[in-house]
């Protein structure tokens, strides 16, 4: 896995989806995220890299307010999604999460059928009027997740019976089914074998055409392969943020250079 090639990148300057500025996160007394400002572009993959415990997952979870489930967690600063502050009092986090979907580190399909896994989001958000429309969404979501051909004959088999890579793609299909605007992925490949990882990475590259994707990863190679923008976190600080090619070939900060050359982390 010494693949450090950087794919052709055409980062369309078609605007900023999420604009975070001056974000501070505290877990009780510990200061997990220190004054982070970052602009997540639309229709591109943004990678968060950094050593363990640097706060990249924490920051990801502030983007769809999943940190709200942790009672001791406090978030300060502004995070604007399409110009609207997601920490505004009038925002219902449940509604927000339908727009900002999330895929987790460990594949976590519901213990239901493949069909019900994908259909769950559209059902609770009332996105369809009849069974045919729902079937359509399920199929297109599974196609987007590159899983349709493998499961189309057993849609009513349990989702937990799939292999690890298939389960993770099912989770991606489930997240895609509610047609979010942003897709957050928290180390989506860390529990997968290399072949499944390759499939999911390919998928992420395809998802870019429809969504703004943010991915947290431990693997610098992965960040180099799939992302257009890279943010390097260290000890709760955003050390450097820029074009992936620039971060990996010409890092401005010595800490970034130490990390990507393997001297820290």
């Amino acid at each position: 896995m010494n693949d450090m090639r950087i794919a052709d990148r055409t980062v369309d300057a078609n605007g900023i989806r999420i604009k975070a500025s001056g974000v501070q996160v505290h877990y009780g007394d510990s200061h997990a995220i220190k004054d982070v400002s970052v602009d997540i572009p639309d229709k591109a993959v943004t990678a968060f890299i950094g050593p363990s415990g640097c706060g990249k997952s924490t920051f990801l979870r502030t983007l769809n307010r999943m940190n709200d489930t942790i009672p001791i967690c406090r978030v300060q600063g502004n995070i604007l999604l399409d110009g609207e502050n997601i920490y505004d009092k009038r925002v219902d986090p449940v509604q927000l999460r339908a727009k900002v979907g999330m895929v987790f580190q460990k594949p976590n399909p519901f213990p239901k059928s493949i069909y019900d896994n994908v259909a769950y989001g559209p059902r609770i958000h009332g996105l369809t009027r009849n069974k045919a429309e729902l079937d359509g969404i399920v199929e297109s979501s599974l196609r987007k997740a590159a899983l349709w051909n493998e499961v189309k004959d057993r849609l009513h088999a349990p989702g937990t019976g799939l292999s690890g890579g298939q389960q993770q793609r099912l989770c991606i299909a489930r997240a895609v089914a509610t047609s979010p605007e942003v897709l957050l992925m928290d180390e989506p490949c860390s529990a997968l074998d290399p072949i499944a990882t390759a499939q999911v990475e390919e998928l992420i590259d395809e998802l870019r055409s429809n969504f703004s994707v943010v991915i947290v990863t431990h693997s610098m190679q992965q960040a180099a392969r799939v992302s257009q923008k890279t943010a390097f976190f260290h000890l709760g600080n955003l050390v450097e943020f820029g074009e992936t090619s620039q971060i990996f070939t010409n890092p401005k900060d010595p800490r970034t250079e130490s990390y990507i050359t393997g001297r820290i982390g």
Binding site: T69, V94, R97, A98, G101, Y120, G121, I124, A175
Partner: peptide, 23 residues
């Protein structure tokens, strides 16, 4: 019940009530 199931439901925009009663 594994917390990952709660995360999964909350992550696709289920309300707390739906998370509890559906999953």
């Amino acid at each position: 019940v594994p917390p990952s199931i709660r995360d999964a439901a909350l992550g696709i925009g289920a309300s707390k009530m739906q998370t509890v009663f559906h999953h």
